[in-house]
Write a protein that binds this DNA or RNA. Structure first.
Lengths: 226, 226
DNA sequence: ACCTGAACACCGTTCAAGT
DNA sequence: ACCTGAACACCGTTCAAGT
């Protein structure tokens, strides 16, 4: 191969564009799990001045907004609805979790970017379709979709922050506490912090259980006056 | 009063200590809602060289760890158990949420600091006491306490990041989407993003409902062999 | 024992200058 | 039209020097 790090300087014309910048940024972010990718590192990786990105994006925030949109679009594309609302919500949640696990920073960003997220709207649409088909009323469906977004983004990005190498340090520390003062902690310490994914799904299923109960409650009501 | 910004230079001896640094840091963090407090700003506020803090804390992370411990200790102190496990878990969750709302950064920090958080252990102890008194088995109680921590810290710190001034921009944008492509979104858009606190409690209650169902399930079983 | 001040290695961003 | 390069205003942190 003539260039695995091709754009470094080899080809001559480096042809920067919004798309090529997004590609490279995501590649770098995926590779250096967790730590922020600086515009200087991005520029160097593309064989270009660190400030060249500013000719295509107004700011780093705008770049990250575009990154978010692309990654969420990937979620929408990968999602294959089954018609079973529980399975569908579960699939959407796990797919979205994958995005935030590899890009923890995006959660905070999406939280306060009030525009240009078409793929986010598609994601909400898919969630709402499942929630309403479950039999939830408009108020509950609206609350539920917002909750799902916050739960997935909040918990997953938090999980991603600690990332590697916690290998039970917490568990051991809690287990070593004096049992007289911490009877409950020491009693169950060996069951604590045994994997974020499992715990995420535990919470997800509790929420889905709760939604199912609410939906069943409504549909089993005799009638409902306005 | 001789000095509202007393430590600036007035008194002469500025007497730095771990306690006085923590006091001032929390004060500054509370005041400048959301934006990070730099060590330079902290030093200036105390009338002291920006690097003087390093004589009392090994790093900024160690400082923030101490801040976390103090704030969580405040939660444990403020908590008054009622004996009703649901009320108690709710109270603990809302008190802890308050900490992360005013100090969003702490969630990420607590996530990967594997030591010296006695107040965190007390918090877990209080949660576990409530969960076990609800009738949950050890495995469920352990999963539940971890979930509660992640839910409260993850969602609340995410809520805090967006902070002020989102005043329905999202809602208006979603409502303005083409109804043909986004039928569900446009149908419920006016019910979306109407306050983080309400949605936080909606999710919290769903989780508590789910836990209650699990506890009831177990205690209504005929018996359980080992 | 504690604080200072210069210095180092980073950030995101702006702007005049190049081509 | 796009990229460069110096510069600005920030970071956390280190370390020799002061008192």
């Amino acid at each position: 191969m003539a260039g695995s790090t091709s754009a470094r300087r080899a080809g001559g014309r480096t042809r920067l564009s919004r798309e090529s910048i997004l590609d490279r940024y995501i590649e770098l972010a995926d590779r250096s799990g967790g730590t922020e990718v600086s515009l200087r590192a991005l520029g160097e990786s593309m064989g270009v001045d660190p400030t060249a990105v500013y000719r295509h994006f107004r700011s780093k925030d705008e770049l990250l907004t575009a990154v978010t949109d692309r990654l969420l679009a990937g979620v929408v594309d990968a999602f294959e609805p089954t018609g079973d609302w529980r399975l569908d919500l579960r699939a959407l949640a796990l797919l979205t979790r994958g995005v935030y696990l590899s890009h923890p920073r995006l959660a905070r960003l999406l939280a306060h970017s009030p525009s240009s997220h078409p793929s986010n709207a598609s994601l909400i649409e898919a969630c709402l379709a499942a929630l309403r088909s479950a039999g939830l009323g408009d108020a509950d469906a609206a609350a539920a979709v917002e909750l799902m977004e916050n739960y997935v983004a909040g918990v997953s990005s938090l999980n991603a922050e600690m990332g590697d190498a916690e290998d039970g340090a917490w568990r051991r520390e809690l287990a070593a506490l004096p049992p007289v003062r911490y009877p409950h902690v020491t009693a169950v310490a060996d069951r604590l912090y045994r994997g974020d994914d499992r715990n995420f799904e535990f919470g997800l299923d509790l929420i889905l259980d709760g939604l199912e109960a609410r939906a069943g409650l409504i549909s089993s009501l005799p009638a409902r006056g306005p």
